[in-house]
């Protein structure tokens, strides 16, 4: 049996795009979450929190560029349909990303008196970007339906995702800090986990009404059986993590990375569930990944580059994270 490239390539690219989005959501999720938590932090804590993400945020946001880039290059038709339908939310997202991205740098370089202003802009930008991403996800799940019910659903997902990002941010602060701030972050994590859980419950309850299509996809025998590990495992991880927040931080700072990794796993499971809800569509109910894909020869040349370069990117990203490993309050002079 010969390998059918025209069939396989769009599928591979859908997978790559999904991977890029997942990595983006996890990595920039903690950046944005820390921005949201800025509202609850003291001045000195804010500096430490920025120190915990300063060297990384840029590379983290690049995963979004890659995800959009892959959508753009691999599925040009879908790219146009999705982004024109989401014109205003995309604009709001960009506004948020611009504000938070420049605030990062400005807050450290402006005269001391103006720093507060940029701290506020950093918080606002992070919050706006998170809400916009959630709203877009909600509307996209419903097949870009922008009726009133769809918008309400979008708003629900927006708050859920913002809470989830804040939880990621809190988990990252737990990993990168110590002392009072770390204890505070544990409390943040507990609160945001509850909010996220409430949001997810609301979204799950709303989905069958909002989208019978997705409901049908999940609740048919025997798929239901194969899919059941996804929600069950997520729920268990959720509960376990919530219980953990009562025992953190642990002596010698053991398991300080565990909350972050657990949340990343929950995100990955949720993402797998989403992916299943869509497959094989890239624009729900309108365009399948094969209908929207670029010419196979163009995909092939991108794939060749990706296969060579992606491992290198992952390698040096790990290196960068290792260079800045350890606690963010670590004021070593050499």
């Amino acid at each position: 049996m010969s390998f059918d490239w025209p069939t396989a390539l769009p599928l591979i690219f859908a997978g790559l795009m999904g991977l890029a989005i997942l990595i983006y959501v996890i990595l920039d999720g903690f950046d944005l979450g820390i921005g949201i938590l800025f509202a609850a932090a003291e001045d000195a804590e804010q500096d430490t929190m920025i120190a915990a993400i300063g060297p990384f945020w840029d590379a983290n946001e690049t995963w979004l560029v890659l995800a959009v880039g892959l959508l753009l290059v691999a599925f040009p038709l879908a790219h146009g349909v999705i982004l024109t339908a989401l014109y205003i939310p995309v604009f709001v997202l960009l506004l948020g990303l611009i504000l938070r991205g420049v605030a990062f740098d400005f807050r450290a370089k402006v005269p001391a008196g103006r720093k507060h202003r940029w701290n506020r802009i950093f918080f606002l930008g992070s919050l706006i970007a998170s809400l916009a991403q959630g709203y877009m996800l909600g509307v996209y799940v419903l097949g870009l339906d922008v009726g009133l019910g769809g918008m309400a659903f979008g708003v629900l997902v927006a708050f859920c995702l913002a809470a989830a990002y804040a939880a990621m941010g809190a988990a990252w602060v737990i990993y990168k800090t110590e002392g009072e701030l770390q204890k505070k972050a544990v409390r943040w994590l507990r609160t945001t986990l509850v909010l996220t859980a409430l949001g997810m419950a609301a979204v799950s309850l709303a989905t069958p009404f909002a989208s019978p299509r997705i409901f049908d996809k999940w609740f048919v025998w025997p798929e239901m059986l194969y899919l059941s590990p996804l929600p069950i495992l997520s729920a268990l991880l959720f509960l376990w993590l919530w219980r953990q927040t009562f025992h953190l931080p642990k002596p010698d700072d053991r398991h300080s990375l565990t909350p972050f990794l657990t949340l990343a796993a929950i995100f990955a499971l949720g993402f797998a569930g989403l992916a299943w809800s869509f497959y094989p569509f890239v624009v729900p109910d309108r365009l399948t990944i094969w209908q929207a894909a670029s010419a196979p020869e163009s995909l092939a040349i991108i794939l060749a580059g990706t296969v060579v370069v992606l491992p290198i990117i992952i390698f040096y990203s790990f290196y960068a994270y290792r260079v800045f490993g350890g606690k963010a309050t670590d004021l070593t002079y050499d």
Binding site: T48, A51, G54, R107, A108, K109, P111, A112, T329, D330
Partner: peptide, 12 residues
């Protein structure tokens, strides 16, 4: 003088 891994923390 600045925290080695941070953005220069104080407004300068």
């Amino acid at each position: 003088m600045n925290a080695a891994m941070s953005q220069p923390a104080a407004g300068e």
